[in-house]
Design a protein around this nucleic acid. Sequence first.
DNA 1: ATGAGATGGTGATTTAAATCACGGTCTTCA
DNA 2: TGAAGACCGTGATTTAAATCACCATCTCAT
Lengths: 212, 212
Amino acid sequence: MKLDLRNAFPNFEIKLIENLEDKAEIKIFEPGEVLMKTGQYFKSILLIVDGLIKVYREDEEGQEYFIYYLQPGQACALSMMSASKQEKSEVLGKVVNKTTVIAIPLEYMDQWMHDYKSWYNFVLETYRKRFEELLITLDHTAFRNMDEKLILYLKREQLIHRTSILTINNTEVAQELNSSREVISRLMKKLAERGMIKQLKNQLIEIINLEY
Amino acid sequence: MKLDLRNAFPNFEIKLIENLEDKAEIKIFEPGEVLMKTGQYFKSILLIVDGLIKVYREDEEGQEYFIYYLQPGQACALSMMSASKQEKSEVLGKVVNKTTVIAIPLEYMDQWMHDYKSWYNFVLETYRKRFEELLITLDHTAFRNMDEKLILYLKREQLIHRTSILTINNTEVAQELNSSREVISRLMKKLAERGMIKQLKNQLIEIINLEY
DNA sequence: ATGAGATGGTGATTTAAATCACGGTCTTCA
DNA sequence: TGAAGACCGTGATTTAAATCACCATCTCAT
């Protein structure tokens, strides 16, 4: 099977792409599957070629708090950080859309950092991006009330799915925001009253305008 | 002035230490001073040789939410990540104890990654450590009630200062936990009732046992 | 078509936390 | 020494959110 790595990772050098095609194992995941589990050892670095991954932080009771998305051209930062030692995953990664990842044996991490400038830049950029996303998530969590968190959540969804019609399951949103279904239900109603969203049939909502 | 860099960074190669002594600018900060401001451009990578730094995330109203400490032998991860582009600081760093830092011009970052294995390891380890600390902070923020947050806060303080007698200012704790003085005051009283702490004179408390 | 299971809406109640209001106790320094 | 300023404690009230209770839909497989 031939992958279009150039498309997903346009900044990679030709040599690196060739090396990737040679060394990397291709894995396909279906929606709902788990890409990485909390506590699981990383055996390889994971690069997302296609699809969409949702990353969560879990607490002891199994509550799954949403932290960020991973998209094509991105990588699981934690799998990279574990390169040297045998480290466990600190997060849970669930497949949203059918996803193609390439898994690179950990030992190439350091070697390629040395050999390919584009890999070096990619790794540092990955760290920076994930760190910043985490800071933003922390902001939302620490400084915002639930109504604002919900609005920010909807904005993220709209942005990531590039559509103003979202399939939203209140129960799931509640879990991901560490709230409860009833609260989300009432807040959704308020957003609709404020004209920010329109509640359609089923589990569909239309985003009208999420700016206050 | 001669710095004991070997002591603060025991894993650095001799050559790297020599290079550091040559290239780095030494800066001394007094308690209360600001090491890095949110929005400020990084001109250099900051390594902590001695002292203690408290790092905060700020919201628009200037609320300062505590995220983690930086200690000798550690570095400001964000200053490293900004190495390539001109990036602004996302956090606020305040000096707790008189602190000595060495400031390294950004251009050496990439060069040394190439030249010194110990620098490479240090940078990756810094990223990993900060990322993990941020995840832990997020846990506390997302999953814990204020009483638990306070207990975790006190544990961190005890650990970092290596003493069971803490100088605690309720007003400040409230700000750092994004709560209010009154709430902290009442929770402290409860912790004292449960025998977990003892409230001494002034702003002193003694940690007895913070495990439930 | 119907009953099970998943989802959603909503009133009532409880709880955690924030806020208000006020008075007390230190420290300090002119 | 005594007034200002920085803390702290605590009752009362309000607010945001969680929880409880219950019923309404919707989906889907038999």
